[in-house]
């Protein structure tokens, strides 16, 4: 960065006074011009440098966490490390929020599927990391606040068309290929469900905003959360896993009780 320099002292030789004065004046002019450019740049440069790298204190704290927890597998500039972790450029806040808030990241081990576990960071820290990844790599973002203001009937239709095949009609999750599975949605928050649709974690297809619009995503969130709160009108839902566990309960518990009743009736009094 150029700094304004002090004017060069004039040549001391008296015989060359006129030439010296001319040289001094051009030196001063150059110095003033350079100084003006330097001051001008200095006035603009620091603010633009801050916008590029350190947008906020939150993102700075996010960067600190990133450099302790994520950098080993995802690299210094989010570019990823071969055989360790994928590039995070373009995944955005949505994917980061989903992975860290559900405890999937930082991962304990490599595998076909990274399991969810108790989150390692607080909600605030998760948002700081997500903010950092967003500021460097860019990508889709999750809206904050209440996401349950969608059209529930539409959400139900979209859930059955797009989600139920893997996550079960009641959001209980289900098996995929080769030991992978689609998780249940029981503990998923609004933001987690929204972020999952937006980012397509692991083997889940990506449902971008042109595919399922933000209004439709909110409708799906409303439906899923209502579904979880709704009680089972038939009594015990038996895990809401469908007819197979229900019939097992009926046969083992129900017929078992009847067998004891029959034995009791037939027993000699």
């Amino acid at each position: 960065m150029t700094k304004p320099t002090a004017a060069e002292p004039a040549d001391p030789s008296p015989g060359l006074l006129a030439r010296a004065r001319r040289r001094a004046s051009s030196t001063i002019a150059l110095t003033v011009a350079l100084g003006a450019v330097g001051f001008g740049y200095a006035a603009i440069a620091p603010s633009s440098a801050a916008a590029d790298q350190t947008p906020s204190a939150d993102a700075q704290r996010g960067q600190q966490i990133y450099q302790t927890a994520c950098i080993t597998c995802h690299g210094r500039n989010l570019q990823g490390v071969p055989d360790r972790g994928p590039s995070l450029i373009g995944v955005g806040e949505a994917a980061t929020y989903f992975q860290v808030a559900t405890g999937r990241m930082p991962a304990a081990a490599q595998g076909s599927q990274i399991p969810a576990k108790p989150p390692q960071y607080t909600e605030e820290q998760v948002n700081q990391i997500a903010g950092y990844v967003q500021s460097v790599g860019g990508g889709p973002q999750v809206p904050s606040g209440n996401l349950r203001d969608g059209d529930m009937a539409l959400g139900g239709e979209l859930f059955r068309l797009n989600c139920a095949q893997c996550h079960n009609f009641a959001g209980k999750g289900g098996a995929l290929s080769s030991g992978k599975s689609a998780p249940g949605l029981g503990t998923s928050t609004d933001q987690v469900i929204y972020a999952a649709m937006l980012s397509g974690p692991e083997n889940m297809p990506v449902f971008g905003d042109n595919n399922i619009t933000p209004a439709e995503k909110r409708a799906i969130v409303s439906y899923v959360q209502t579904l979880k709160e709704t009680k089972d009108p038939g009594g015990n839902g038996v895990g809401r896993l469908g007819p197979v566990p229900e019939s097992i309960v009926l046969w083992v518990a129900g017929i078992g009780a009847l067998m004891f009743a029959v034995l009791w009736i037939g027993a000699k009094s």
Binding site: L161, N162, G200, P205, V206, F207, G208, N210, N211
Partner: peptide, 13 residues
């Protein structure tokens, strides 16, 4: 549906 509607890894019925 238009080609720009789906992101890579996306699916639409």
């Amino acid at each position: 549906v238009r080609p720009e509607d789906l992101r890579p890894g996306g699916m639409e019925t």
